[in-house]
Amino acid sequence: MSGPAAALRGYDAELREGLAELRARREELSGRIREEEAERSRLQGRIGALTERLARTSESLARHLAARGELDRTIAETEAAYGKILESSQTLLDVLKGEIGNAGKASEPQN
Rank of each mutant, 00 (worst) to 15 (best):
I100R: 02
L15Y: 12
G98Q: 07
T74S: 10
L92F: 11
L96T: 12
G101K: 13
S89G: 06
E59Q: 06
E52R: 09
L92A: 15
S88H: 12
L71Y: 06
L86P: 01
G98M: 03
V95K: 09
Y11K: 15
Y82D: 15
L43Q: 10
A62C: 07
D72E: 13
K105R: 07
I100H: 03
I100K: 02
R53H: 12
L22Y: 02
E99S: 07
H64I: 13
T51R: 00
E59A: 05
G3D: 15
L71D: 05
E87T: 06
E79P: 14
L15V: 14
L50N: 03
R26V: 03
S60W: 07
A49D: 06
D94R: 04
G104I: 09
E27V: 11
R23E: 09
A7D: 14
E14Q: 15
L92V: 11
K97Y: 04
S2T: 13
V95T: 14
L96W: 08
R73C: 04
K84D: 08
P109L: 09
L71M: 11
L8H: 14
R23D: 11
G69T: 03
L15N: 13
E37H: 03
G45H: 00
Y82G: 15
K97D: 08
K105C: 06
E77M: 05
E28V: 09
E27A: 12
L61E: 05
G31I: 00
L43D: 03
S88L: 12
A76Q: 09
A81Y: 14
E14W: 13
A7S: 14
A81K: 14
D12R: 11
R68H: 04
A106C: 11
R34L: 06
A38W: 01
A80M: 01
G104T: 10
A106V: 11
T91H: 08
E108M: 11
